[in-house]
């Protein structure tokens, strides 16, 4: 009996340690963002302090406000999501539902594009965008974000489209609906959940992207992940402000992640399960 108790205590201890390990860096950032400039520098680190929103006020409305960067991130993410979904929904429907030669290849192509290292995309893209003056523009960044968001969205949506029985469409044809009408009235409403999940993940990936953003951003378009660097320099780090910016950058994705909790495994493993076109 005592061996058993020892075991369950050990299990509890280990699991708590891991929960803490995962949660702590995030909690610590939140705590630091609520400290005053002097509290944050205290040694040993303070766990108990009187919280203040000074840091947030500073980074949002002070000089060098990151508000434009948050807006930048938002425009990029929303724009990427809209364009991606408009293209991915019809493509996914075709891949999941229609019969045509080369379908297997088309599905494979979508997956294979993911093999290309992002750095291999950004080098030529940078040259092209520089020539046409699209560096530091929204259209430039959104366009290149399609390189990763489209394959992802297509494959995730295909898995939802495939869940709808064929008979549903056939019933609609017999009821006199055309192909497009069937897609619009019968199929899309049934994949609403899948579309929502896809939107969440596309937004999340766009919000989190860094490499393309670092290369293509400038004074006009600079998402928050890049702008964060302003608060860290060789000479000094603006600790509380950095913490506040980090929390602001984390907030939307954490909220979305928790909302989409049940679908997260599917969203993270999409495409890998099939490893190529089916049928």
């Amino acid at each position: 009996m005592s061996a058993r108790r020892l075991r369950s205590t050990a299990v509890l201890g280990i699991s708590l340690a891991f929960l803490l390990a995962w949660a702590f860096p995030i909690i610590w950032s939140v705590l630091n963002s609520l400290k005053t400039g002097s509290d944050v520098l205290a040694y040993p680190p303070k766990l108990v302090f009187s919280p203040t929103l000074d840091a947030y006020r500073d980074v949002l409305f002070g000089s060098g406000s990151i508000l434009p960067n948050l807006i930048s991130s938002m425009i990029i993410s929303v724009g990427t999501t809209i364009v991606t979904m408009l293209m991915a929904i019809p493509a996914a429907y075709a891949l999941a539902r229609l019969r045509f030669r080369g379908k297997k290849f088309a599905g494979f192509y979508v997956l294979a594009t993911q093999m290309l290292p992002p750095v291999g995309i950004i080098i030529p893209y940078f040259l092209v965008l520089r020539n046409i003056g699209w560096i530091d523009t929204y259209q430039g960044i959104i366009l290149i974000y399609l390189s990763f968001s489209l394959p992802f969205a297509i494959w995730l949506l295909v898995s939802y489209f495939e869940d709808i029985p064929f008979e549903m469409e056939e019933a609609a044809y017999l009821d006199g609906a055309s192909r497009l009408r069937t897609l619009w009235r019968i199929i899309i409403p049934q994949v609403r959940g899948g579309v929502a999940v896809t939107i969440v993940f596309v937004f999340l990936n766009a919000w989190n992207e860094f490499l393309f953003a670092v290369v293509l951003s400038g004074n006009t378009v600079r998402p928050v992940t890049v702008a964060m660097f302003n608060f860290v320099s060789v000479e000094q780090t603006l600790w509380a402000k950095l913490a506040a910016v980090s929390v602001l950058a984390m907030l939307p994705v954490v909220v979305l992640g928790v909302v989409a909790q049940k679908h997260i495994v599917k969203g993270l493993t999409v495409g890998a399960v099939k490893g190529g076109g089916r049928r």
Partner: peptide
């Protein structure tokens, strides 16, 4: 859809 036929499917295929 132009044949003027109604059908009941095995799975019912209700929307």
């Amino acid at each position: 859809r132009d044949r003027d036929i109604a059908m009941v499917f095995q799975s019912y295929a209700l929307y």
